[in-house]
Design a protein around this nucleic acid. Structure first.
Lengths: 285, 285
DNA sequence: AGATTTTTGTAGTTTTCCTACATACAGCGA
DNA sequence: TCGCTGTATGTAGGAAAACTACAAAAATCT
């Protein structure tokens, strides 16, 4: 049903292929974007094989035929822009690099989406729903993420706070009650101060939901580890997409909590919105 | 070259179409996902027109023919998942709604990407590069965005600050010098306090870059208006994607500034990273 | 080296898409 | 209202693309 990862499939299947089919596979992997505007004869010629071989290749990777293959490939190309060049170069115009920044962000989000573990997310939502208190800890860029999260969960009628200060985190952590939740957010997963705070929270019986890269200390020490891996080419010209991935993960948690809380939340949010209008000019809408 | 927004194009062109072509257009907009697996005859039959009409329709919206149209549509479908249902329902499992949240975010980003005006972005980048001081103003959720922006630009060796407090904004605004820049961020574009602050900044000769919805007062009062329109179905179960769009727009600006500043920035960022390592456990990498 | 199996290409068939043309419809002036 | 002109739509036929059956070539095994 879904386009899935065509190129992945090809790479996998390439080993079990016959020589001439492999030629096709290699050509496709080398010039994925060109294929879309090719006919079967063009591809056959450029891969130096015959037409039926191309058809057999399409079947070999699970497509109906050449048309179907082209369509699926087109979808994959559109879905993950990472096949275009994503790194920003010095010659790029504004339009170029603005496209690239958006595309790489989208690419990151799609990857994170597919790597999330639903079971872990479910546990996180449950923990958040049952907590009396929910706090968000993060430093640096993750501090802003924590602030955003606090703002979001605050609207869901939860007692929340966000701290970017080590000492305050520490003090707050010590006063946690069993069942209370801290969401620890980190891009590196190695920030020492954050790890300390996590240990304190757990020692007093609090639950720690971590949003950090796989295998990092923050993930290892957490009760509910949400692993988010973003290859940070920390090249200067590459934007940090991980913050954004973290924000969206938190959005998912927020939606989960909202679902659990059910309709009584509607009224609350409605009243909130009414109140906000007074702070705006032009009270229509 | 690019897939662009097919459905958008169709909606636009539908007015200038003849009756029977319009039938096709309406069917396509109603069942976009089905088209991909249809042949020209199928579509003709279901739209109750003849085959050549379908071909004419394809030409009318700028495609080579039916094949080309199908391909472009497939790309758009893969790229913007919004054509699947995006609203979260009560029956959704964790996996379901987590997918939806990511997809709707991606969808928002792609729309914003295609609607950005490069010329305006260029002006914004130039203003930022020439400023002695750059400040970010925002309230509520946009406050977190401002904080994130501050963190980001701070790394680019600019004198920056982010304020979410009306009084402090006001005071800071009054001390602006000509050429200094304030980036005003707002989801509604109507927050009264923010509009006041903008007026003050402009009265002392400061430049205001606004990130807000088209036509809103914030945009109208700005020197450099970056229009970002996100349909906020402010349904409870729909996440607010506009924050994220704003963040990415700011990423673009940051990349632009980094490009202008050129290589001397490399050293600075490198030293910053070195320094951060000391705050982490496991100093490898 | 010969026989068998596997792999690849040739030639032909079918399907799909597109174009030329004819008919039907709508708008306008008398 | 009628006829004329121009546009809009469908019919039928032709071109091209994709797919299939079969035969030749290569590789493998005995």
């Amino acid at each position: 049903m879904k386009p899935a990862l065509m190129t992945q499939k090809i790479s996998d299947a390439i080993l079990t292929m016959r020589k001439s089919e492999r030629k096709v596979a290699e050509f496709v992997l080398a010039h994925p974007a060109d294929i879309i505007h090719m006919r079967i004869v063009d591809l056959a010629k450029r891969a130096e094989v015959s037409e039926p071989t191309v058809v057999r290749f399409c079947r070999a990777i699970g497509c109906e035929g050449f048309q179907d293959f082209k369509l699926n490939l087109a979808q994959q190309l559109a879905a993950s822009p990472s096949f275009g060049q994503i790194a920003v170069t010095d010659e790029d115009t504004v339009a170029d690099y603005s496209h690239k920044v958006f595309d790489s962000t989208v690419d990151t989000l799609l990857k994170v989406r597919d790597s999330l573990n639903p079971e872990i997310m479910d546990r996180a939502v449950n923990a958040l729903c049952n907590a009396n208190r929910v706090e968000f800890f993060g430093f640096g860029a993750s501090g802003a993420v924590a602030a955003d999260a606090q703002h979001k969960f605050f609207r869901l009628q939860l007692a929340t706070a966000a701290y970017s200060d080590h000492h305050i985190q520490h003090m707050s952590a010590m006063s946690m009650k069993p069942g209370d939740v801290v969401v620890a957010i980190s891009q590196s997963g190695r920030t020492e101060a954050l790890i300390n705070a996590i240990e304190v929270v757990r020692s007093v019986g609090g639950i720690v939901i971590a949003i950090a890269p796989s295998g990092s200390p923050v993930i290892q020490k957490a009760s509910i580890p949400i692993e988010v891996n973003v290859e940070e080419d920390i090249e200067i010209y590459t934007p940090l997409s991980s913050r954004i991935a973290h924000l969206v993960v938190i959005d998912v948690l927020a939606i989960g909590v909202a679902k659990h809380k059910g309709p009584k939340l509607h009224d609350h949010l409605f009243r909130l919105k009414q109140g906000l209008r007074k702070l705006r000019v032009n009270n229509e809408r």
